[in-house]
Amino acid sequence: MPEQSVLEATTVPTAPSGATKPRSRRVLGSGVIDSLVVAGPLVAIVIVAWAIAPNFMTGANISNILSNAALLAIVGFGMTLAITVRGIDLSVGSAQAFAACVTGISVNSLGVVPGILIGLLAGVVVGALNGMLVTLFAIPAFVATLATMTAMRGVALLTTDGTSVYISDPHFTQLATLSFGGVELSVVVAILLGIGTWFLVRHTTLGKHILAVGGRPQAAAESGIRVSRVLLVVYVLAGLMVGIAAVLLSSRLAVVNGTYGVGLELQVIAIAVLGGTSLAGGRANVVGTAIAALLLATVNSTLNLLNVPSYWQYVAVGLILLAALSVDGIRRMSKSRTGRASQAGGAA
């Protein structure tokens, strides 16, 4: 069957507009602009921190910030995808604790490689569970992942009997701090996953389907996209990211515990939204997520350096979340207004 049947059948009328064609002036993608919006505050915060916090600009602190940001960003990439399909994953914190506990136990009993694989699998399993609740049982993501969040916290505590498990294998515990030209493994992994997620969203068919499902679910379904499958894949990917972060975290801390990751979901939602991923769905900004992760990690570390009590750190995350949400709201409002205005202007 001829692919281009239409174009052959109807002799293309030599469009008079053809002369004025190649209008491929690629405007700066709005994604880039949105990322700059986050990069500004990041630079500002770094400058302020440098000025007021002692020891901010030390190698140890910077690398600490980077690896904290890396772990946030990795989970954040999964959250970005979930939010893009108009979903959310509240279970990331508990799932991370669960996957970390599983990793710790299996590294101790089965060795490094099986331990890592089982840890990743634990994340995937939670993701698949979320995905099935959302698709098969059509439970709203918020409620479904709230349930898994609670359940997985319990399971995480059960696997370690509520105690801490120390990981003795030095091969495993050195993994996270393995340095590639001064850059830690977790940072390298985060960068690679970031590029991968960005590529997924921008350049693959699955990415287009994710954006379509988030942007207009009905149009996506009526176009022939298998919406449930896309949702399932997204939650599994989110779970996989959680698993990866959990493995890196347990390697870094060399001890695992069922109470890890409490409140992680809010931090991660904050960075995804602050980065420019729209809560209304259909718009993902992976680069923004990475930058916002750096921002949050910088804020946390600065507050630590300044000996601000941890209660205030909760307040800070809350404020950042609030700021992120209002930025998202403002962005959406101005989109709907300028969208019209520029349309009217362009038509003239």
Partner: peptide, 17 residues
């Protein structure tokens, strides 16, 4: 059956990219 967040090209080839 169009997705406002996708480009013209991506919409046209949506689901048969």
């Amino acid at each position: 059956r169009l997705v406002p967040e996708l480009s013209v090209a991506d919409n046209i080839f949506l689901c048969h990219e």
